[in-house]
């Protein structure tokens, strides 16, 4: 304490100077708006520099967490993208007409998976039982017949493509009206085989092949393709022809599921007739 007082006494001049000068500077900084702002600004600039260095280091150290956060955010945003959701409203057109009873209803949809390469090809559509799709419904595109629905889930349906060796559909020659069974035997995805045609009829190349409408699946008159060539005159009195399919299965995008409103009635009648 004594030493302190001695020190103060010995250096009273300098200490007094420092005191008074400090008081002046405090006044300068506190009461002069320009110096005040300037002081604040420069201290902010220095503090900002220091802070930015620290935050750079901090950012680096927390990169893992940041990445995780960004990933979560990305996933959340992706979920919100329109591409992630399915449109549940369908513009299924039903016409009200007292003259005609509507038999077929078309549900527009999109093909979301497709193949032409395997022996038994399937398609997947983006609508399902929620939208009224049931197994056994026909699928057509603007160009012609595509396949038959095999199974449905609430939001999707699996379709047996025409390019599937297990599917046979009833087809007829538009010009003559003779019908046969159309199937695919593998190989070229553009060519199907029309079998069981009567042997005596005249089939020329380019004849139009359409669905017969004899089954409850396809409506009558849906385009299938054109006769490419008559391949075989069967010994059993039947002949077959290869048909160039009108649908290009390699670029299939928008199709319609055909709902046969009278299917149940027709099947019940046929069943009753067979049983009797």
């Amino acid at each position: 304490m004594k030493n302190l007082i001695l020190f103060i006494l010995r250096n009273h001049y300098v200490l007094l100077f420092i005191l008074l000068e400090s008081v002046s500077f405090v006044m300068v900084v506190r009461y002069n708006s320009y110096q005040h702002t300037s002081f604040i600004n420069s201290s902010a600039a220095v503090a900002g520099q220091v802070n930015s260095v620290f935050s750079t280091v901090n950012n680096y150290l927390s990169l893992n967490q940041r990445n995780q956060e960004l990933n979560d955010e990305l996933a959340r945003l992706r979920t919100m993208m329109p591409e992630s959701s399915k449109i549940d409203t369908l513009a299924a057109q039903t016409a009200f007409d007292s003259v005609y009873t509507q038999q077929y209803e078309y549900l527009p949809c999109r093909v979301i998976s497709n193949s032409v390469k395997s022996a038994n090809n399937f398609l997947t559509l983006d609508i399902g039982s929620k939208h009224g799709v049931e197994p056994g419904m026909a699928v057509v595109s603007a160009m012609g017949a595509v396949g038959v629905v095999k199974a449905v889930s609430p939001n999707f349906s699996s379709v047996i493509s025409l390019l599937n060796q297990n599917l046979k559909i009833s087809a007829m020659l538009e010009k003559s009206g003779y019908f046969g069974s159309l199937g695919w035997e593998g190989g070229d995805y553009r060519i199907a085989n029309l079998e069981d045609l009567p042997g005596h009829i005249k089939v020329s190349n380019g004849d139009v092949v359409i669905t017969s409408g004899y089954s409850t699946i396809f409506p009558k008159g849906v385009m299938i393709g054109n006769v490419e060539s008559v391949t075989a005159h069967g010994v059993n009195g039947f002949m077959s022809a290869s048909v160039r399919l009108s649908v290009d299965f390699k670029r299939l995008s928008n199709v319609q599921v055909v709902r046969n409103l009278l299917k149940k009635e027709q099947l019940e009648l046929q069943e009753r007739a067979e049983n009797e």
Binding site: H12, L16, E21, V23, S24, V28, R30, N32
Partner: peptide, 28 residues
């Protein structure tokens, strides 16, 4: 004396500052 010089300087400066409306500038 030195301390008196400092005190007088302080008083002089603060007097000027009071009139100039610039506290501390002339004082320092």
């Amino acid at each position: 004396p030195g301390w008196l010089t400092l005190v007088l300087s302080f008083v002089l400066g603060i007097s000027i500052d009071m009139f100039c409306n610039s506290p501390g500038i002339h004082t320092s």
